[in-house]
Amino acid sequence: MIELTGVTKSYGALLALQGVDLAVRKGEMFGLIGRNGAGKSTLFQLMLGLLSADAGCVQVDGESVAGPRFRAVKRRLGYLPENIVLYDNLSGVETLRFFARLKGVDTAECMPLLEQVGLKGAAARKVREYSKGMKQRLGFAQALLGNPALLFLDEPTNGLDPEGIREFYQILKTRQEAGTTIVITSHILAEIQQRVDRLAILQGGRIRAVGSVPALRGEANLPLSMEIVTHSDDTRALVEALQRTPFGKLTIRGRHIVFECQREAKMLAIAALSPLSGHIADLQIQEPSLEDVFLGCMGVDA
């Protein structure tokens, strides 16, 4: 659905993107993560045709964003910028009808969309009376106008409460199941960890890593964390057994024993604990989080 080859973009002396190669498959939810200034917003604007690359090629749905036929492709795109600007003197439904006319979309879509994003009861209120989260919902509704084939969402849950975030991703899941391709950025890595199919990590204008979260975990070779809860405060037998194995440092807190082991040693750890199962009340295995993977790629000790 999206293909970038050797894309470079600079702003004067600042090199924002350096030789970026990236492909987003049709129908997937693809994440872009990176520190502030990593190049995510520039990449978004290039894929939307709002900026021109200094070098390289950007294609969306088979068309170059610099070509004459991309205008037709743009009509099938939806975009929610990180900082959406709305007209305070318009109501919610008037705002959505305004965007619908700009996009050439039937205004009959507006009220059902407002209901879908939870703004039906506030449709007639002026935008100036909306909270930050309500404005974000309205911005999301405008991105959904026209049932776009491709959605670009830049920090889309900014200002939403937990319930709003859950509803937002439920809508996205439904759209994706219907065939929509979604590109999303978020600084809340735990939020997208279980939701994206694949993601790219940007650093200094370059793609540092691309893949699914499990694949990136494997590439990062980060240790697992294992926590044992014993039946009593007497942990001696378990500690002695673990000390005979090649695992990391043990941390003991009352009935809790925590240690790290490499992924390939997980079954060895379980085998070492099996004869002592009568002493164990619970065992939890914690995979490295997306935040751990991200910091590892950035060269930061988590």
Rank of each mutant, 00 (worst) to 15 (best):
Q203L: 10
I192C: 05
Q203W: 05
P214C: 10
D197E: 15
I188P: 04
Q194A: 15
A190Y: 04
V196N: 00
I192E: 02
S186E: 03
I228N: 02
G218M: 08
R217H: 08
V210M: 08
G211Q: 10
T180C: 14
T185V: 07
G204H: 14
G211V: 05
H187S: 08
E177I: 05
G179M: 08
L222Y: 04
L199S: 01
I228A: 06
R217Q: 14
I228H: 03
I201D: 00
S186Y: 02
V210K: 04
S186L: 04
R195Q: 14
R206M: 12
A200Q: 03
L222R: 02
S225Y: 06
V213L: 07
R195A: 06
L216D: 01
Q203M: 10
G204P: 07
V196M: 03
E219C: 06
I184N: 00
Q193R: 11
V213D: 01
L199Y: 03
E227K: 11
V196R: 00
L189E: 02
V183P: 00
R208F: 08
D197N: 14
A190R: 09
A200E: 02
R195S: 11
N221S: 15
A215I: 06
P214F: 11
L202Y: 03
Q203A: 12
I184Y: 01
A220I: 09
L189S: 07
E177T: 07
L202N: 00
A209N: 11
I228W: 07
E191K: 08
G204K: 15
I182R: 02
I188N: 12
R217W: 04
S186A: 13
D197W: 02
